[in-house]
């Protein structure tokens, strides 16, 4: 199977708070074809995100495929509530970096 860097086939890779207790990751694909393939093989699992962020699978709340935007969304539990003592990203806007190094399968 051929692989491609996620950054080559995604238009948007971002993180943000979904309320103060959750962090949500969005990946939007440039081309519906790549999105459909990855959805079909269910590439984006809770286990995948748990591994990338070094957290337990229970802390990955859900992974959702959203066809109208050719997008995948993963929502996880913030290890620290936004703005609480020790938190280092109040808006949760810079937690997407582990996704930038991902190589994903693409249809031949």
């Amino acid at each position: 199977m051929t692989e491609a860097p996620l950054t080559d086939i995604a238009a948007v890779i971002r993180s943000k708070n979904a309320g103060p207790y959750e962090l949500t990751l969005d990946i939007m694909f440039k081309d519906e074809k790549h999105y459909r393939f990855l959805k079909q093989i269910d590439y984006f699992t809770r286990e995948l995100f748990a591994g990338l962020y070094g957290i337990s699978v229970e802390n990955i709340l859900k992974v959702v495929y959203f066809d109208p935007a050719s997008a995948v969304k993963c929502t996880l539990v913030r290890s620290l509530v936004s703005g609480s003592i020790g938190d280092s990203d109040v808006y949760g806007a810079q937690q997407h970096a582990p996704l930038l190094f991902l190589k994903v399968p693409v249809a031949d």
């Binding site: 709340l61 959203f66 935007a69 050719s70 997008a71 969304k73």
Partner: peptide, 17 residues
């Protein structure tokens, strides 16, 4: 666009549906 409008539903939300 349909995509930009649809994509907004993801923004800061845990479940777009």
């Amino acid at each position: 666009t349909p995509t930009s409008t649809a994509a907004h539903t993801l923004y800061e939300k845990s479940d777009p549906f």
